[in-house]
Computed example of a mutant assay.
Amino acid sequence: MSASTMRAFAPAPCARPRSVSRSTTRRVALAAAADATSAQYLRGRAVADKLVGTSVFLIGIMGTGKSTVGAALAKAMGYKHLDTDELIQGVTKKTPAELFAELGESEFRAIESLILAEVAAYKNCVVSTGGGIVCERTNWMHLHNGVTVRLHGENELLAKRVLADGVEKRPLLASEGGESDDESEQMARVVARIEKLLEARESMYKQADLTVPLGSRDDAGAPVDVVIDRILEALDARVSEDAVQSKLKNEPKDGDITVTDPRGELGPKPNA
């Protein structure tokens, strides 16, 4: 089976002071967003240069936003974005949910593994994977061709996202039954399912090279740009760490290794 790689403002004169117009506010906001995007773009390109073409694989349970984050991360790094679920649909002309219903999970996983084997051969890609891709041991041979980044959030946050997106898109929720109009019951059911899946997969997700949290202070989940910054920071640190390990293997000279603690991350943590 083959998968193709697709794919200024000047206020008008006025005799008395006026409040800032909506147009001005919008332009200021857009300018700020452009600055943030520019900074992220530069940082992303710098990290991509250090990775020297190594692809990044996003893994994580349903609701972690792998597709959305993957597209934004690829843009920041100048990489190509590939989504295994989208590729499967492009090849089979059926959604993952439809394939689950018609063929069962085992056959779907076999197709998923074939797609992963193809995309793993490419460099300079951010690959958003399905939540269960970690379940097949042979898939790790392909995932280890790049850097694996696990997106991780609180179960309640993930359940909210899944419900907002529509449970019908999640084949592993189709068997839950007991559909109810009561939001609290729906939430409890999805949280329970996520907990059950994590119980079975946690040891596999922990094999990721990096784990990036999705949380925020208000429990609504961090914005995508914040998650991208976290990923880039983690990738940058990991590349630097690997460079140090390379020096260790080559008998480092004095001055090769410098231990610093710029963010106060060594030693005891302050109480939250």
Rank of each mutant, 00 (worst) to 15 (best):
G177M: 08
E185M: 12
E154A: 14
G267S: 05
S4L: 12
I228H: 02
E136C: 10
F57P: 04
A192D: 11
A8H: 11
P17L: 09
I88A: 12
L197C: 09
N139P: 02
I61V: 12
P171R: 01
D182G: 02
T95F: 04
E176N: 07
A110F: 09
G131Q: 00
L210P: 05
V28N: 08
G146R: 05
R109F: 13
L30W: 15
K66S: 03
C135A: 14
E176F: 09
A237Q: 14
H81R: 10
Q40N: 07
P270C: 01
A31V: 14
E156M: 10
N139D: 04
L103E: 11
V147T: 15
G90P: 03
L173V: 08
F57E: 02
A234K: 02
M6T: 15
A36G: 11
V147S: 02
C135H: 10
L266K: 09
E86C: 07
L58T: 03
Q207G: 08
E265T: 10
D225A: 15
I194G: 02
V47D: 02
C135P: 04
V224W: 04
H152S: 15
K247I: 01
A15D: 12
I194E: 00
D261P: 05
A15C: 14
R109V: 06
K196I: 08
L73R: 00
G255R: 13
R7V: 14
G63I: 01
G130L: 08
H152Y: 10
M62P: 01
N124V: 09
E179Q: 09
Y122T: 11
V91D: 05
A3S: 15
S240N: 07
V119N: 03
S184M: 10
G130V: 06
A174V: 08
I228V: 15
E185W: 10
V134T: 04
V149T: 01
R7T: 14
E241L: 09
G44S: 04
H81E: 06
A101F: 01
A72P: 04
S246D: 13
Q207V: 08
G130R: 04
I115G: 00
H144K: 12
E86V: 14
Y205N: 04
V226I: 10
F108D: 04
A29P: 06
G60K: 03
G146N: 08
M187Q: 09
L87Y: 08
V244T: 03
S106N: 11
A200S: 14
E233N: 11
L157H: 09
M204P: 05
T5D: 12
V191Y: 05
V212Q: 00
V69E: 01
S203M: 03
A76H: 04
A3R: 10
D49E: 12
A192G: 08
A36C: 08
L42I: 00
I231N: 02
R238E: 12
L173I: 07
G255T: 05
